[in-house]
């Protein structure tokens, strides 16, 4: 049987080249052809060897002791930020250096202007403010939106709304820039231990009266005494008028804007009071991260401009 098919193949190939077998037989009669490799394949194989040798010469390839061959003719050359010409063997890090320098050079006209201009000047100039706005929008999405939300509306109770015109730490360009540069820590102690639950109830009643809610007169009067007296000592941070102080980011309690107590979404006075009591009992300790280590001065400047614009600023 095997000899049959063997002779058939030989026959069909004609007499040009008789196919050899490898010479050994398995299981008595199974043999293996030993066809020569196609010529194109053999040459392709030699070509890869030649390619490898050329590659060794041109690119980093061979380790030598604690160093390695760097290759010839594959230098990357660019002018760095300080104007120095740098030549190094090609590598992805140097390519990045080169691309960053080039990108900066393309934006240089605008970046220099932004670096030199005050935020007020940026806001006044259409070209500058358009460029600053488009850059800041991306920065805000990458760095700020996770807390302050896209658009800056914030999360009541956790992250302040930047798109309204109410500022804990001041809404001038300078204030906002300081906030972003150094971060902020909004701190109010917990009064759970210091005040009885009736007293917390009274002082919450008073807090709601500050923002023109219709409250119980007797309770409000008792609450006022606690707020402005030694017992609560709220006035120390929130002022006697309850308007808060920018220097310590203590919220203005007289406007109808709430950053921690979710008063607006509660329907009844009781529910609103519960929200306020929650803040008084638990206290506050929330942190705005420091950005001066992550972002450049110019980036912070245009973010301040962007945030200022979101909220209308002051």
């Amino acid at each position: 049987m095997s000899t049959d098919s063997n002779s058939k193949v030989q026959g069909s190939k004609g007499s040009k080249q008789a196919v050899q077998t490898t010479g050994h037989a398995w299981d008595g009669d199974i043999q293996e052809f030993n066809n020569p490799l196609p010529t194109w394949w053999v040459w392709a194989f030699y070509a890869t060897i030649v390619f490898a040798v050329i590659y060794w010469v041109l690119y980093p390839a061979w380790p030598i002791g604690r160093d390695y061959t760097k290759g010839v003719m594959n230098d990357i050359e660019y002018t760095d930020a300080s104007g120095k010409t740098v030549t190094r063997h090609w590598n992805t890090r140097s390519l990045l250096d080169k691309e960053m320098v080039q990108a900066k050079a393309e934006q240089k006209k605008y970046l220099d202007q932004l670096a030199a201009a005050s935020i007020e000047e940026i806001a006044k100039d259409d070209e500058k403010s358009n460029f600053a706005y488009s850059m800041a929008k991306v920065l805000f999405a990458d760095n700020c939106a996770a807390c302050h939300q896209p658009g800056g509306a914030g999360v009541v109770g956790s992250y302040p709304n930047l798109a309204d015109d109410d500022w804990l730490w001041g809404g001038s360009f300078k204030d906002i820039k300081t906030t972003i540069t150094n971060g902020r820590n909004g701190y109010m102690p917990s009064f759970k231990a210091a005040l009885s639950s009736e007293k917390i109830d009274d002082v919450a009643e008073y807090v709601l009266s500050l923002s023109k809610h219709k409250t119980d007169a007797a309770k409000t009067a008792r609450g006022k005494a606690i707020f402005n007296g030694q017992e609560g000592g709220c006035y120390y941070c929130h002022t006697k008028a309850g308007t808060g102080m920018v220097s310590m980011g203590s919220a203005n309690l007289t406007d109808s804007i709430w950053t921690l107590a979710d008063v607006p979404s509660a329907d009844t006075l009781e529910a609103k009071k519960a929200a306020v009591k929650q803040v008084i009992m638990n206290g506050v300790n929330r942190k705005m991260p420091v950005w001066k280590e992550r972002l450049t001065d110019t980036q912070i400047k245009i973010l301040a401009f962007y945030v200022h614009q979101l909220g209308g600023g002051k």
């Binding site: 996770a146 939300q149 999360v155 956790s158 992250y159 929330r286 991260p289 992550r294």
Partner: peptide, 21 residues
């Protein structure tokens, strides 16, 4: 590291959609 506050990480890990819709 240091990009967000501890509080944000706690909120985010407990319920990511409470901060990133």
């Amino acid at each position: 590291g240091k990009k967000y506050s501890n509080q944000w990480h706690v909120e985010h890990l407990t319920a990511p959609r409470s901060v990133v819709k």
